[in-house]
């Protein structure tokens, strides 16, 4: 018998690790996210001006397309009086370019930390509530349901405005509104995993419940939450900017995209478009990058 069995299984006995190709959309996502991370690390230092100090030149429009080559040559040659304002200056005289590239330090830091905080708490409570089902964890889910029914933006606004407009408070507020999402997501996944054969098999093998939860259930329940992370980071950036826009976010002169758009908003009806447009473009691309990345990860996960 064994020889025939070998024959039957021949095509499966040698193992070739499968190759996975990244698609172009994923590459766009990864590029954008990488650039934003780079700016979060080095952005404040590489701009031509200090992002938190005004210049004497107020509301200067950005150079026209035809002027750029000349300015570039002059800049490199060192013949300019002062470094060019690539994106112009705003009504207070800040250099917009320096502020746009310095802002990820604020925006990404807030989004990332809020996400990590909510991810950890949400996954932890989700695992507990999904794996050990009793009245205590049932209560936990009810509490989370109530939290999730809060109107997100207004709640974030209330928390930040009443607790004080600081980055830390924004992080806590965002983590507060996002934790229930992770809890629910993880719990649903855990519920699905606990009835699976390998969990039963692990139990039949004599593993303790804690060991099954941590070694088998948790790793297999994490993926949806991790994919959601990419989306959540993007939305956290939107929310951070939105809070600044209505005056419930970080305080000026912190370089922050939403705050910059808000500063320029009053001028836009007068035709001064640049103070708002450039930071908005940065948000638009960044959040799109995170959305694309999240989606690519999701499709890869679905494909297995």
């Amino acid at each position: 018998m064994p020889d025939q069995v070998q024959d039957l299984l021949l095509d499966e006995t040698t193992y070739v690790p499968p190759v996975r190709k990244a698609d172009w959309l994923m590459r766009i996502g990864v590029s954008i996210v990488t650039l934003v991370i780079f700016l979060a690390l080095f952005g404040p230092y590489i701009g031509p001006y200090d992002p938190t100090r005004t210049t004497i030149r107020i509301a200067v429009p950005p150079p026209g397309l035809t002027e750029i080559p000349g300015l570039l040559a002059g800049w490199i040659g060192g013949t300019l009086e002062y470094p060019p304002h690539w994106m112009g200056t705003d009504a207070n005289g800040y250099d917009i370019f320096s502020r746009v590239i310095a802002a990820p330090r604020t925006d990404l830091k807030i989004a990332l930390l809020a996400n990590i905080l909510s991810l950890i708490t949400g996954v932890f409570f989700g695992l507990v509530a999904g794996y050990w089902r009793n009245w205590g964890t049932e209560l936990l889910i009810r509490v989370s349901d109530v939290l999730q029914s809060f109107p997100v933006f207004i709640m974030a606004m209330v928390l930040v405005a009443l607790a004080g407009r600081s980055a830390t408070n924004i992080i806590i507020a965002l983590a507060f509104v996002y934790t229930p999402i992770y809890l629910r997501l993880t719990r649903a996944e855990v519920l699905g995993q606990t009835s699976r054969g390998f969990v039963e098999a692990a139990r039949a093998m004599g593993n303790s419940e804690l060991s099954i939860a941590l070694r088998h259930v948790l790793p297999n329940s994490l993926t949806p939450a991790l994919i959601q992370s990419s989306v959540t980071i993007g939305f956290a950036i939107l929310l951070t900017a939105g809070l600044s826009f209505v005056g419930a976010g970080v305080r000026p002169p912190t370089p922050e995209w939403g705050l910059m758009i808000s500063t320029g908003a009053n001028q836009i009806v007068l035709g001064e478009w640049w103070p708002s447009v450039f930071p908005g473009l940065a948000i638009s691309l960044t959040v799109f990058g995170f959305a694309v990345l999240g989606n690519a990860l999701e499709r890869r996960y679905e494909r297995g």
């Binding site: 699976r196 054969g197 390998f198 039963e200 098999a201 692990a202 039949a204 088998h216 297999n220």
Partner: peptide
């Protein structure tokens, strides 16, 4: 010990 019906489901993927 026990061997289950669905071989894919019985092992940690």
């Amino acid at each position: 010990q026990i061997v289950f019906q669905d071989p894919f489901d019985s092992v940690n993927p």
